[in-house]
């Protein structure tokens, strides 16, 4: 009796964490759907196939770099430089995965390669805002629903492309930054640290963009590391003073 309850309970709680994942992923799904529509529209305007657009979104699944790749394709860039730029732009996920790994339950094994595929700026921000350790089924649910919505939005944007005026298309694209902002503001309301770290990173990213050798390719990664490092060092100093 007790044995069977023990076996059943994880299944029950897994269902509820999947539902929680769907609930938390819902805002991302709405955002991704509209932004992916802008992407689908761009794919169509670049004279690529619907299947190319869907493959881009479901196999690469990295919004900003997909927009960048299309831009580079239409301006005639070679695909080696596109792949290199994609690597540099998406290298920030390396830091996010490390950060996510520090919050994941130790019991994850086979789920790791699946979870890794779905790490994006938005899914990362949502899962990291959750209190306590993260269960693999919760994270996979958030990732899956976001991914599905990104793919569906791409297809819809391509198909509906005939009916979407330019001004609406670029407004949907702007939605990407609105989404970032609405993920950041709740963190800022929780504590001043988030505001300071974010503003420092924003300023550094702007400045680094003009520095030779860093340039626009490395500026984001460097800005994120430097600003987080500065406030980590300041934080330990403050604590040291408080302890004395």
């Amino acid at each position: 009796m007790i044995e069977s309850e023990k076996i059943r309970e994880p299944v029950k709680s897994r269902n509820s964490t999947v539902m929680m994942g769907l609930k938390d992923a819902f805002p991302i799904m709405i955002g991704y759907f509209s932004i992916a529509m802008a992407f689908g529209l761009m794919v169509k305007n670049a004279d690529l196939l619907l299947s190319d657009g869907i493959l881009f979104s479901t196999v690469v699944f990295a919004g900003a770099s997909q927009f960048m790749a299309l831009n580079m394709l239409t301006t005639g860039a070679g695909w080696i430089s596109i792949v290199a730029a994609t690597f540099l732009l998406n290298f920030r996920h390396f830091i996010m995965s490390a950060s996510l790994g520090s919050k994941l339950q130790k019991t994850c094994n086979w789920q790791i390669p699946v979870i890794a595929f779905g790490v994006t700026d938005e899914t990362f921000s949502v899962t990291m805002a959750k209190e306590g350790e993260l269960t693999p089924s919760y994270v996979m649910a958030v990732h899956f629903f976001s991914w599905a919505s990104w793919g569906a939005g791409t297809a819809s944007g391509y198909v509906l492309g005939f009916f979407i005026p330019d001004a609406l298309g670029s407004s949907l694209g702007m939605g990407l930054y609105v989404l970032f902002m609405s993920l950041l503001i709740p963190e800022i309301k929780k504590g001043r640290k988030a505001l300071l770290v974010a503003i420092t990173a924003a300023l550094l990213n702007t400045i680094f963009g003009y520095v030779p050798f860093i340039g626009s390719n490395w500026s984001l990664v460097s800005a994120v590391i430097v600003s987080s490092l500065i406030f980590t060092l300041l934080n330990t100093q403050e604590k040291g003073v408080a302890n004395e």
């Binding site: 900003a64 920030r92 830091i95 996010m96 950060s99 700026d121 990362f124 921000s125 990291m128 930054y177 970032f180 902002m181 993920l183 950041l184 963190e187 640290k193 988030a194 770290v197 974010a198 503003i199 420092t200 990173a201 924003a202 300023l203 550094l204 990213n205 702007t206 963009g209 500026s219 984001l220 800005a223 994120v224 600003s227 987080s228 406030f231 980590t232």
Partner: peptide, 13 residues
């Protein structure tokens, strides 16, 4: 701190 920094740097510029 990484999430705050990433969001800040993505929004601006």
């Amino acid at each position: 701190y990484i999430p705050y920094a990433v969001l800040g740097a993505l929004i601006i510029p």
